[in-house]
Computed example of a mutant assay.
Amino acid sequence: MPPLGALGRFFPLSWAPHLCVLDDPGGASNLKSSGLCSGLFSLSQVNLCNTSSLLLQSLLEALSELKTFRLTSSHVSSEGLAHLTSGLSHCHHLEGLDLSNNQFGEEDAEVLMGVLEGMCQLKRLDLSHLPLSSSALAMLTQRLSHMTLLQSLRLSHNQIRNIGAQHLAAVLPGLPELRKIDLSGNGIGPDGGVRLAESLALCKHLEELMLGYNVLGNITALELAQRLPQHLRVLHLPSSGLSQEGALILSQALDGCPYVEEINLAENSLAREVPHFHQGLPLLKQIDLVSCEIDNHAAKPLAASLALCPALEEILLSWNLLGDEAAAELAQVLPQMSRLKRMDLEKNQITACGAWLLVEGLARGSGIQVIR
């Protein structure tokens, strides 16, 4: 096995603060004494060619107790991927694996799926921004069925489409510890969205749900509203093909949820059906309604709903159709928002008169730090 310094000459490595640095001349060559066996191994923006990948393989083979491995935003050759998967197969105690944003061919992605076999202790898996083919995804779902400890699954921007969503929906109920899932930007339509909503309802511990930049439509919103996870904290559905009907259904389902901290419905055609709350959300910290075609007609119910969310820190309403009437309504409730730190109203139709009303409202009690 090569000394640590040899590997550091081929590509830069970043480590957790308590671990040795590879390009440090005094760095330990003894892996066990370095503390690396129980820590984090992170690579980013490297060219994993044949020589460097052989060194990496050799190092990983000695790290059987490694907990977290990250290789991101890198170019990986076919041979390099083979060396990587061989090395990772010796890391039997991995809890975190991040291979996002790497460049390799679709056929190589199938090779990558092979390394997941036997990784039954994984708690965090990130395969975002990869060229996952339908066959690679089928292999992935087979591997996922054995990862019963998995808590976080990120597969965004892979274009898995409806068929991929249906494959995933079949295995998600078998992940009892799942708390976070990100399937944003995958070309999923209403059929796949409905199947996912049905499946995710069985994930009893789910806290963060990110399905934005898919064409889910109102039918998926209806299915989600009927099956919202009990402990939901984060719901991201930007640019999801929702209209006024979908927004109304979701807001009714979310109203009164005790744990929700973030809601993102940006870039949907909500118009007058902005979230209407009657009970409020006691822990809501951020709401994103950017570019939702919201106009003055929605201002009063919007302001009333925001007033029922005492923990709000960030309100994003830029690129809408709000004017001075909306500014006046918001100004009335701003003094109640003692935790508000940021309000974004950029690119609306508010004049100097409306801006002055907002300033007066803020002066009466808000601790806001940024307003646009």
Score class of each variant (00 low, 15 high):
Glu223His: 11
Leu216Ile: 01
Leu284Tyr: 00
Asn101Lys: 12
Leu242Glu: 01
Ser240Phe: 06
Val215Thr: 14
Gln230Phe: 12
Cys91Pro: 00
Ser134Gln: 13
Gly217Met: 04
His92Phe: 12
Gln159Ser: 15
Gln159Tyr: 09
Ala82Lys: 14
Gly8Pro: 01
Pro335Val: 01
Leu183Thr: 02
Pro275Gln: 01
Leu308Asp: 01
Leu125Glu: 01
Leu127Val: 03
Ser135Tyr: 08
Ala352Cys: 11
Leu22Gln: 05
Leu172Arg: 00
Pro2Lys: 11
Ser184Lys: 00
Ala225Pro: 04
Glu314Tyr: 07
Leu153Asn: 00
Phe104Thr: 01
Leu232Thr: 06
Ser34His: 07
Pro17Asp: 10
Val194Tyr: 00
His167Met: 15
Ser156Cys: 09
Leu358Ile: 13
Pro258Tyr: 02
Ala247Cys: 14
Ile350Lys: 04
Phe104Met: 14
Leu283Ser: 07
Glu198Leu: 15
Glu208Trp: 06
Ala311Glu: 12
Leu228Asn: 02
Gly27Asp: 08
Thr148Gly: 08
Leu88Met: 05
Val215Arg: 15
Cys353Arg: 12
Val234Phe: 07
Leu222Asp: 13
Leu209Pro: 03
Leu84Asp: 04
Ser89Cys: 10
His167Val: 03
Phe11Ile: 13
His205Asp: 13
Arg154Gln: 14
Leu22Gly: 08
Ser240Ile: 06
Val115Ser: 07
Asn30Glu: 13
Leu132Ala: 00
Leu22Val: 10
Ser52Met: 06
Gln121Arg: 14
Gln230Tyr: 10
Ser366Gln: 05
Leu127Gln: 02
Ser145Pro: 01
Arg179Asp: 00
Val370Phe: 09
Cys120Glu: 14
Pro131Asn: 08
Ala327Gln: 05
Gln279Asn: 14
Leu60Ala: 07
Tyr213Gln: 11
Leu316Lys: 09
Leu254Val: 02
Ala136Gly: 03
Gln226Ser: 12
Asp108Pro: 00
Leu196Ser: 04
Asn320Glu: 02
Asp126Ala: 08
Ser291Glu: 12
Glu79Arg: 11
Leu155Tyr: 03
Ser135Glu: 12
Ser133Phe: 00
Cys49Val: 14
His157Cys: 10
Leu36Tyr: 00
Asp288His: 14
Asp98His: 08
Ala62Ser: 15
Leu345Cys: 04
Gln45Asn: 15
Glu177Asn: 09
Ser34Phe: 05
Leu178Ser: 03
Ile160Met: 07
Glu329Thr: 00
Val115Gly: 02
Val46Tyr: 00
Ala307Glu: 07
Asn296Pro: 06
Cys292Asp: 05
Glu223Lys: 10
Glu65Arg: 11
Gly174Met: 09
Cys292Arg: 05
Arg364Met: 11
Leu302Lys: 01
Glu61Cys: 12
His231Trp: 10
Phe41Gly: 02
Asp255Arg: 02
Leu330Gly: 09
Glu314Leu: 14
Leu7Phe: 11
Glu106Phe: 09
Leu235Asp: 03
Gly365Leu: 09
Arg233His: 08
His146Arg: 13
Gly256Lys: 07
Cys309Val: 04
Ile368Val: 15
Ser77Cys: 10
Ile181Glu: 03
Asp24His: 12
Val333Gln: 06
Arg195Ser: 13
Ser14Phe: 09
Asp255Phe: 06
Leu4Cys: 09
Leu130Lys: 01
